[in-house]
Simulated assay, not measured.
Amino acid sequence: MTANDLPAAAGTPSDEALELLALLHEQQHASGWKGTTQRAVPIADVKKIFFRMPRIPNNGKELPNRALSDYLRQLSDAGHVKSSSRTDGERVPLPLSIRLTPIRSAGKHIPPMPLWHSKLAWAEEYWALPHTTDKIRAAYEALNAWLHRGHEGMRVPLRERALKVFGHHRFFQQPKHPAEKVLDTLKAKPLFSDRTWLLRLINAFEVDPPLLTKEFRSTQLEEDSGYHRLGKGRTLLVVENSTTYWSISHALGHIDHRIGYVAWGIGRTFQKSIGSITPKSQITDIVYFGDLDVSGLSIPLGAGQHTRAGLPPIRPATELYDALFRLGTPGRCPPKETNVTPARAQELASWLHPRHRGPACALMLRGERLAQEWVSFDHLSTDERWQADVR
Rank of each mutant, 00 (worst) to 15 (best):
N144K: 03
P190C: 15
A142S: 11
D224T: 12
F166M: 06
T87Q: 04
R315F: 01
E90F: 09
L320P: 00
H148M: 10
Q74W: 00
W374F: 05
P102N: 14
E373R: 01
L115F: 14
S105G: 12
S14H: 02
Q27V: 11
D293H: 07
D5K: 11
T12E: 10
W146L: 04
T338K: 15
A371L: 08
G302C: 09
R258S: 11
R170Q: 15
L363T: 03
F172G: 04
T382H: 12
L212S: 12
Q282W: 05
P175T: 00
G79T: 07
H109S: 11
Q38H: 11
L380N: 09
D45A: 14
Y261R: 09
V262Q: 09
P7S: 03
P178I: 13
S31E: 07
A142F: 02
L363P: 00
N59K: 12
V390L: 13
R86T: 13
D88Y: 14
R385A: 15
S85L: 15
R73K: 10
A138Y: 01
G358A: 06
K232D: 02
V46E: 04
R355D: 01
V238A: 07
W33H: 06
H356M: 01
L199M: 12
I56R: 14
L75H: 09
R357D: 02
K47Q: 14
T329N: 13
E215P: 00
P342N: 04
P95L: 08
G328W: 02
T278W: 01
V287W: 00
H131V: 00
T101D: 05
P157D: 06
E337R: 01
S249H: 10
H168G: 08
H117D: 11
L24Y: 13
E180T: 10
